[in-house]
Every structure is written in structure tokens, then in C-alpha cells.
Design a protein around this nucleic acid. Sequence first.
DNA 1: GTGAAAGCGCTAACAG
DNA 2: CTGTTAGCGCTTTCAC
Lengths: 337, 337
Amino acid sequence: MATIRDVAKISGVSISTVSLALNGSRRVSADTYQRIWAAAQAVGYAPNPVAQSLKSGRSRLIGMLVGDISNPFFGRMLKGVERSAIEHRHLVIVSDSGGNPDRELAILDHLSRQRVAGVILAPHGNSPEYVARINQLGMPLVLVDHRIPGVECDFVGSDNTLASAMLTEHLIRFGHRRIAHLAGRTGLYTTGKRLQGFLDTMQSAGIEVDATLIVDGDYDGERAYAEAMRLMTRSDRPTAILAANNVMALGALQAIIDLGFKCPQDISLTSIDDVPWGNVIQPRITMVVQQVDELARIASEWLLERINARGGPAPSPREHILIPRLVVGQSCAPPSS
Amino acid sequence: MATIRDVAKISGVSISTVSLALNGSRRVSADTYQRIWAAAQAVGYAPNPVAQSLKSGRSRLIGMLVGDISNPFFGRMLKGVERSAIEHRHLVIVSDSGGNPDRELAILDHLSRQRVAGVILAPHGNSPEYVARINQLGMPLVLVDHRIPGVECDFVGSDNTLASAMLTEHLIRFGHRRIAHLAGRTGLYTTGKRLQGFLDTMQSAGIEVDATLIVDGDYDGERAYAEAMRLMTRSDRPTAILAANNVMALGALQAIIDLGFKCPQDISLTSIDDVPWGNVIQPRITMVVQQVDELARIASEWLLERINARGGPAPSPREHILIPRLVVGQSCAPPSS
DNA sequence: GTGAAAGCGCTAACAG
DNA sequence: CTGTTAGCGCTTTCAC
């Protein structure tokens, strides 16, 4: 591969002049610039980004670190982020923390050593040490999905409380009172918000919540299947289920089908988050969908903005809460009894 | 961030000794090694990978370049690849070619400039210039999914001909003769193989193929929906459809449902490739599934092997063809007439 | 306007 | 065994 030296030799100038010229300095005569440019073309010169990174301490790589890259939600997000990145001549390093805070910190460490220009992070920790480590990263950071209390940086997420509130309200209007909540992993930011939206709405409606109908599904399909099985085989089974995410809803639906129940005749089901091709799943599940593409767009835009603003004054932390949309399917009906 | 110089200063030796020691040279006394190691710990030293890359001409990054990262198939593959990579202390740069060969070549160029250690590529070109460019990459390369005629390198894929042959046979045994094929994008390697498996099996069974029942679905859900609509509204409609991939099958199913047909009573449907949560789609679609995890495992293993074997003799190109598994659902039945 | 030189952090001869 | 030195390819003062 051609280096700056080759170009210098061919065009008969020093390497510093080549660098100056190619970086658009106005202190190079038009004539020399032409010669240099022609030479660069001729040998197919392009600067070595590794050398540039070493010199500048920054690479043109951005990191994206999430809990599960095989989750289609993140797949779509990755696609959006990668698109923006490419447009700004950056590449994306993707990594999977498996939802483990320690692993996450270790990977952030690697990324920072790689001198990535910035990171989009779906965080999974909240301990004081974790927060401290995040705050010491010293590179542009945009949080998505979860927020970390105590970390001041850009955040893009959905209104999780509203999401579950919308669905709860929807179910209540159908006349449901015994509504079960398949909650997410205990301790996570979104889990709490979604639970809260459920509880608040129930309370506003003056409906007492049966605490045994709130179960931990761990954002996991298998786990949700098991929990739904337990719920549906109770004599005092719920008349509706609100699942805190898509895979849990599908797990629950599977349990419902396997047991021989009919949805929505025997039980209503609602879900937070879309599933790909959700419209061929019978019945179509009533859900609130997060605007993933919008989320990806804003997150990458903000990150790249901060990256480009380096040296200048960093904008103060912003946050954007996307409003989920309710998509009504055929999975809800009045309680049967 | 601490540099090798800091460690040298603290432990009272030169930087080269530090480098030697930390790289496990046996020519450093146990005593000095201890001091150096302790110092490195103390300041939290870790080598700067950018500097290492500049020096060695190679980074600990591997590229993965596919046609559509939001496709769950690649999502699962990415997960596997990333896992292996991390185990070998590498990070993964993911990029999306959008199935466009020029874009693909441009990105490969970026990756090669980044001095990535190797690339896993789902290729999308076949022109002579394309082949030439690929052959000149000069870095470890593993092809997945499609093969490029004229490029000698490791390849991991599925037996596409067998996949469609299995499904065609399955349909024929139910008594179907008018079988439609929703084919993939024209010109692609897999598209041809899948079509061939269909045609061969039909021929072996002595069934004449109606050429108008072979339609181009472009591996696209929308397109498949439209084509299925066209097929199903014909008076001489087929009694079964073989979709060349998952999204097309779902598009077709949607069309079937929207038109008021019942699957499998009115029409049988089969698909190549699994869909996530395929088992909650009603009816369960009979399909052959590719062993994605296995594919990811082998591809990344081979790539990392070549990366580590640099300098030594490169193993000659290998290929592994995964045998798809037939998963019988409830989407097939004897033709109704 | 252009060039010489220093240095980003590291590795690897080559000396001692 | 350990230190000196020369780069890897590039940017960026600072002289001329």
C-alpha cells in the first residue's frame, strides 16, 4: 500500500507538504497541490488510519455495546447506526455484553484502548463502582434504552412507563381487572419503569393489584413460557397478560397455545416492543412499538455531533424520550367469565 | 493512560525491557519481570493496540461484512462470531453492504486500510473486476453463505440445492404437482442453487414444471407478498409454494391469509431458513433450517486460525457445507382438489 | 510556500 | 540479561 512517502517522492516534494496539501491547507500553491493530488491518484494513496489514530489519539471507529446483538431490536438499531457512521466515514465495532456489567466494563475498556471516537451503550449496571467507571471513560458516550442514574450524558430511550400504561389502560377498557404482568429482569431501569406504568394505571383505575400476578420473566422467552404456564394453570388465572417485552410475549403465547387456550377468547395478551414480522403471528398481538429507527438515528447523530465537536464546547447532556405507538391487534377481548 | 514509558520509569528499566518482559520473553530475569509486572499493575498499564497495529501492520480487529445486518440470520451469526472473536481477544467491525457489490468493495477497502486481521464476508458480486479485487485483498478471508467462483478461500455455507430438494420432495410426497417457487434475487449464488434443487427434484419425479410458477421474489418480504398475491389470484393457482427464504415465506403467508385462504387446507407452504420464534407463527411453517450457530462457529474458527497462522504456511482453502435440517410444521397437506 | 524534525507508543534488531 | 536505536505512517510546529 502506498504511503505518504511514495506520493512525496513522485511529486517531488517533502512528506509534510503532501500532508498539508491533502489535508486542505491553504498554504500550498495550487500548482503543487495539483501535482500532489495527481500523484496520490496515480498510486492509489489513502492515508493509513492506524497511523492517524496513533498521532491523534482518536480513531474513526465507534463502538456499539448492547446486551444481546442477536435481538432483532438491536439488529435494526445497529443497521441505523452503521448507516450514519458510514456517512460520516466511520466504522462500527459491535460487541455483546450479555447483559453482564463486568463484561460490559471490560469491553468498554478495550474500546477505549482502541481509541474509539465514541460509544453507543445500552448499559446494564448501576452499582456505585460501575457508575464511577462509566463516568471516567472520557469519551463521547450516548446511552440508549436504559439510563444510568448518576451518569450525565446523552440519553435516547422510550417512555417505558407510558408504554405499559397505554397497554394497561387498553386492557382495563376491555373490562379486565385480573391482569398479570410478565416483568423484565429485576433491577433494570426499564423493568422498573414498565412495572410502574402498570401499577400507576391500575391504581388510577381503582383496581387492586394481585401481587402474585406480577412475575419475573427476566426478558427471556423460555422463562416467560414457564411463568405463563404457571399463571395459566392456576385456578384463579388472570384474564389478561401484559408482557414487558416481545420475546416474553411470544413465550407466553406459546404457553397459551400449548395448553389449548385460545387467545383472545380465553386470555388477552399485550406486549411492549414489536417483533419482526409480527403481523403474521396469529393472533396479531396488541402492542406498543418502540421507534427503533428513530432511536438509532438520534443516538448516532448525537454521538457523531459530539465526536465532531471535540475541542469545542461540549453540548450539555440531552435526552430524547420517544413516544411509543399503540398498535392494536386481535389479541385482546373482554374477559370471558 | 499509562504508557510503556511510565512502567519503565517506575520499575527502573528501559522501555525495551518492559516490552520484552510483558511479551513473555525468556531473556528477562525473574526478578526484573516481577518488578515490571508490579509496576504495570500499579499504573494500570495495557499496551496501546493502535501503536501495536502501526508497528505490526495488523490490528486485533476482524471485519464482518454482510448484505443486511438487520436480518436476524446475520444477527445470530454476528453473535457467534463476536463470541469467538472476544475469546481470541479480537473485536468485530460490522458493516452492511446492502447487497451492493461496489459498496462492498469500498467497505473492504476501508477495512483493509484499518489493517483488520481478517474478514468474514457474505459476498454479493461475481463480475470479473469484482473477483479480481477480492483476490487482491491480501488478508485472511472466509466466505459465508455465497461462494464466489474464481476466489480460492475458505467457504462455509449450507447445501442450498439439498435444502430446496428436501422441501420439494416433501411436497411431492403429499401429492403436489403444481408447485410454485418463490425464488431469490436473480444472479445470486444461493438463488441458483435453490432453484436447481427444486428443478432437479421435480424432474426426477417426472413432473413437468410450469415456468410461470417460478417467480422472482428478490429475497424480499414485500416483493414476495405481491408475487404470492399474483400466484394465488390465478385461476390455475399452484397447490403449494416453496419460498427460497424466510421473509419471503412470511410475505407469502400474509398474502394467503389476507386473501382469505387457509394454510394448509387451500395451499401448502414451505420455506428455507428459520425465523426467530417461528414456532408461534400459525401454522408452523415446514422448513429446512440452516445451522447458523455452527456456521458462525466454523467461520470464525477458520478465520482466527488463519490469522494466527500468519507467517506459517497457510492451510489450503477448505469448505464446509452444512446439511440443513427439515423441520416439519403444519403448513403442508395434500392438495385440496 | 516548503522542508526538517519531533513524536504518537510500540517492537525488534543489534550492541553491550 | 538489558539498553540504544531505528523505524511503523502520519501530523504539526518551527525554521527558512
